[in-house]
């Protein structure tokens, strides 16, 4: 199979590849960024990659509507999580004057 052909007929694999890329990017952001906001965005990316997988499996796989539903749940939870996380971040900033994860160390000597 040639490449254009592969592009012409989008199938499950395509979605999975995109999702994998998204996940990797998210993970990279979580691991490498020092700014908490950036870390949070990385997490969002990871979540969305999962959503993509759900929907894709719902379309092509044996899952029917469950995939969609779980994806919706994830979006909602992600929103909530973002709200809570940002609130925490705000507090951290107020307390430490920084959002740098390296500098926020209470338990470490």
């Amino acid at each position: 199979m040639v490449l254009p052909e592969w592009f012409a007929e989008p199938g499950l694999n395509h979605f999975l590849v995109v999702s994998a890329v998204l996940f990797s990017l998210g993970l990279l952001a979580v691991i490498t960024r020092r700014n908490i906001i950036m870390v949070l965005m990385g997490i969002e990316l990871i979540l969305n990659s999962a959503n993509l997988n759900f929907v894709a499996f719902s379309r092509y796989g044996l899952l029917s509507l469950e995939g969609h539903m779980i994806a919706l749940f994830v979006i909602i939870i992600a929103a909530a999580e973002a709200a809570v996380a940002l609130a925490i971040v705000l507090n951290i900033y107020n307390r430490f004057g920084s959002v740098d994860v390296e500098q926020i160390s209470e338990l470490k000597e």
Partner: peptide, 13 residues
């Protein structure tokens, strides 16, 4: 044990 989640994540990965 750095206390840094990111380090732990790298370990996990």
């Amino acid at each position: 044990q750095t206390g840094n989640i990111q380090t732990y994540l790298v370990f996990a990965l």
